[in-house]
Nucleic acid binder design. Structure first.
Lengths: 163, 163
DNA sequence: CGGAAAAGGTAATATTATAACATTCAATGC
DNA sequence: GCATTGAATGTTATAATATTACCTTTTCCG
């Protein structure tokens, strides 16, 4: 069996979705936050894949499900989900991704495949440490850190249909 | 004398600008790239400060100088300057910054002050290494890395007019 | 129940970026 | 010199992303 991270290999993805939604419900209950139908629906759509989706992609998916929403609806749901730590914004893509470490205190790093668009979230302590140290060396107080790596995932290195 | 990096303390900024333009001319000549008046003007505007400027900010500054340009003019100049390694795009701000390491092969990290908006570019090898290692651990081939830290610069930690 | 706060609906618009096509400029060979 | 050609720029329109403002509905809680 391959040691690849989930997004990079075929797997029972409906389990990912179920797990993510279950975690979200638990987390929101614990935080007294309301995971309303709209918010849950947006989260479910985000979890349909391991790719980052744009707000307007989500809007279109909502429309397909019969939920005719306007942009603020989606952005508000995304704001909520981000505040709860259930979703990350991938700034270099203007897109959103389900968080794989919901509830844990973390500041993720993202490996973005430019071919298949799948995104893997890491929480490598060495990276956080190195960034923290470099900031401290400049007497800079870091509050939030964006680390996004663009490249090719293991699967796409082999498959060859890219460059 | 403070050991702070340039953007964080008062300094003879016109020297920064002169240096940046001189470097740009040298670099473009070496690369057989044409630093046209428009491109040079955009670069000069970017170097008016150590803050990252949006494309439409630059457009407005061009207009003030009597150069009535449309968006593509600015974006094309910025594309050129980025290709020459003279300008960086700060993805979390949708804005552009003069490169302080023009000509050197590098992948910068950026410390963005959320109060004064000044941006310091670092090229900390430990950060690059840590990110490279974390990527390699996932068999991911990194091609480009975005590292942007939002926080408070040394000056703004003291001045108190923020939060 | 009733008031307050939170969430969602709706319309308009702001901000950032690009597409498509016409025109001008500048380097090169003849 | 001058025609050719590719690069650069101008121009118009529009795409893609995100927010503001205001109003209605729902939920919470006393």
């Amino acid at each position: 069996m391959s040691a690849s991270a989930l997004p990079y290999r075929t797997h029972n993805h409906s389990a990912c979705i179920r797990q993510a939604l279950a975690d979200a419900r638990t987390l929101c209950r614990a935080n007294n936050a309301r995971l309303t139908p709209t918010r849950e629906q947006v989260l479910e759509l985000i979890w349909r894949s391991h790719k980052a989706l744009g707000a307007y992609d989500l809007l279109a998916m909502l429309a397909e499900e019969g939920h005719r929403a306007a942009p603020p609806t989606v952005y508000r749901a995304l704001d909520f989900l981000q505040r709860q730590g259930l979703v990350h914004r991938i700034t270099s893509l203007n897109a959103f991704l389900g968080c794989t470490h919901a509830g844990e205190q973390h500041c993720g790093q993202f490996l973005i495949c430019r071919n298949c668009r799948n995104v893997l979230e890491l929480t490598a302590p060495e990276v956080a440490l190195a960034v923290g140290q470099a900031s401290a060396d400049e007497a800079f107080v870091a509050e939030d850190t964006v680390v996004e790596v663009i490249g090719l995932c293991p699967a796409c290195q082999l498959s060859g249909n890219h460059d």
